[in-house]
Amino acid sequence: MALLSPLPPSPWPRFSEPLKLAVLASGNGSNLEAIATAIAQGDLHAQVQVVIYNNPKAKVAERAERLGLPKVLLNHRHYPSREALDQDIISTVQAHGADWVIMAGWMRCVTQVLIDAFPGKVLNIHPSLLPSFPGIHAVDQALAAGVKVSGCTVHHVELKVDSGPIIIQAVVPVLPDDTPDTLQARIQVQEHRIYPAAIALAASQMA
């Protein structure tokens, strides 16, 4: 595997106070666990203040509970607009003392309301080498296009989906017999590798 962007120098940057993270997730939460593991190992100087999830059946809730992390359900179906949901996200993030919003499999488009509340501090991870294959079903898009490499990207969030400045990318080869599941699994290994490092790098760039 290869990186298209260098990881921060080892040890990763440390700050006078740990970064205060709010993690947004809609699914299994494997990237949440990768971030929590990096924190526990002392690689990422941060704390997960709250896990926000929008799907009542999301496995991330069980993972957050096992990790001893506060969790809050904000079911998007109960909101009249995306802006209303984002306003509640902002209130929840602030109430838990966080100031970084880490989208880790958050399957909702965010609005300028959220982006403006945490300028430069809203990050996302996407399973492709952006700007190629933004949006949903990125792995399927890559296989359909017949590319020889794919990968993942951590980037700052802007209003246009998957368009913000890139922080770190990792490359994964596409094998001749790959299926969406097998390629996704190899990409996810790299997601777990680069997301904690990208958080540290993004914070160091703002220091």
Rank of each mutant, 00 (worst) to 15 (best):
A145T: 02
V101K: 02
T37W: 01
T179F: 07
D178F: 09
G27S: 14
A207D: 14
L19S: 05
V157E: 11
D99M: 03
R77C: 03
L32A: 00
Q169H: 10
K57W: 01
V147S: 12
T111Q: 01
N75I: 05
P119Y: 11
V60A: 11
I115Q: 02
I194H: 09
A25V: 04
P134A: 09
H96M: 07
F133A: 03
D162N: 11
L175H: 14
N54W: 03
P176V: 11
E158Y: 03
M107R: 12
V157R: 04
V139I: 15
V72K: 15
A25I: 02
V172F: 08
S91R: 15
V147R: 09
Q184T: 14
L123I: 10
K71M: 10
R14W: 02
Q112R: 14
H126M: 07
I39A: 07
L44F: 07
S26N: 02
D99R: 11
E158S: 03
V139F: 08
L74Y: 01
V113R: 11
V101W: 01
Y53H: 15
C109K: 10
A46D: 10
S204E: 13
P11Y: 05
D162E: 09
K148L: 13
G42P: 07
G105P: 12
Q41R: 14
L130K: 10
W12Q: 03
V23C: 07
A64S: 14
L21K: 09
